[in-house]
């Protein structure tokens, strides 16, 4: 198997000893087909056990290992070394506080996720004994794409709106609201609108589209947010401009 000497420049920050972050250069022999995460793992095992980052599944589904790789938000388990030449610069996910090295604090995202009520608020409740809610394949396809979000937060790191206006609820959380709104079993859209159709909600989005470009799960949050803007606008028109339309 072909090997290659890879140089990585990794952002280091240890609150115990550092007042600011600095870059550290590592050289490590890697196999051609490896991903950036493999290189980091080799560094940690053989060169520097004090390097810190999160990872688990190594198959782009657990969403742990998001980082900035040459300025682009990426899952490091899905960032192939073959795509890079020269020194690879590895930094923690942008727009999140850095706890240490490549480890960021996702608290803000977790809080926002909860705010959009990402669970079924049933249209009509029925007991388990009555079986499943019928849902045709077409009804499933209507929301399935938006249920694929792995919560890796790459979209938050890519979104300049979130970087500049941290109150923005952001792509992944809003997309999840859309996912439940689109589900034939759900009747909770009105409740979610209180969070979604606000200045901090979809109206903070200026459609940069970066979220969809970096999404490793092909969710297309930009699409979800634009659709929600349209439906929210329709809500407004019905409520304010059509006599008797007030809901």
């Amino acid at each position: 198997m072909k090997e290659r000497l890879v140089q990585l420049e990794v952002l280091r920050y240890n609150p115990d000893t550092d007042t600011e972050a600095h870059f550290q250069r590592y050289e490590v022999m890697c196999q051609e087909e490896w991903v950036v995460l493999d290189a980091l793992n080799k560094i940690k095992a053989d060169i520097d056990p004090t390097l810190n980052y999160r990872w688990s599944c190594h198959m782009a589904v657990c969403g742990s290992c998001g980082m900035m790789i040459n300025g682009e938000p990426k899952l490091s388990c899905h960032a192939f070394l073959r795509a890079y030449e020269g020194v690879i610069r590895v930094e923690p996910l942008a727009h999140f506080p850095v706890e240490r090295d490549l480890v960021t604090a996702p608290d803000d995202f977790m809080e926002k996720l909860k705010r959009v009520k990402p669970y079924i608020i049933p249209k009509e409740k029925k007991p388990i004994s009555e079986g499943e809610y019928k849902q045709t394949p077409a009804q499933l396809m209507k929301f399935r794409q938006y249920s694929m979000c792995i919560n890796c937060m790459l979209c938050y790191a890519a979104c300049p709106e979130y970087g500049l206006t941290p109150d923005f609820i952001g792509p992944a959380a809003l997309t999840l609201a859309h996912r439940y709104n689109q589900d034939s079993r759900d009747g909770g859209r009105k409740e979610r609108q209180e969070v979604v159709a606000t200045h901090e909600g979809v109206w903070e989005c200026t459609f940069v589209g970066a979220c969809s470009e970096v999404c490793p799960a092909h969710v297309d949050p930009a699409s979800a947010l634009q659709q929600m803007k349209i439906t929210s606008s329709i809500d407004w028109i019905v409520e304010h401009l059509i006599p008797g339309g007030k809901s």
């Binding site: 079924i120 849902q135 045709t136 394949p137 249920s147 439940y180 079993r185």
Partner: peptide, 15 residues
């Protein structure tokens, strides 16, 4: 299913 899991479906909407 009641909690929203997107199970694949038959044409008639059953799981």
């Amino acid at each position: 299913e009641h909690w929203g899991c997107p199970w694949n479906r038959e044409a008639d909407g059953s799981v």
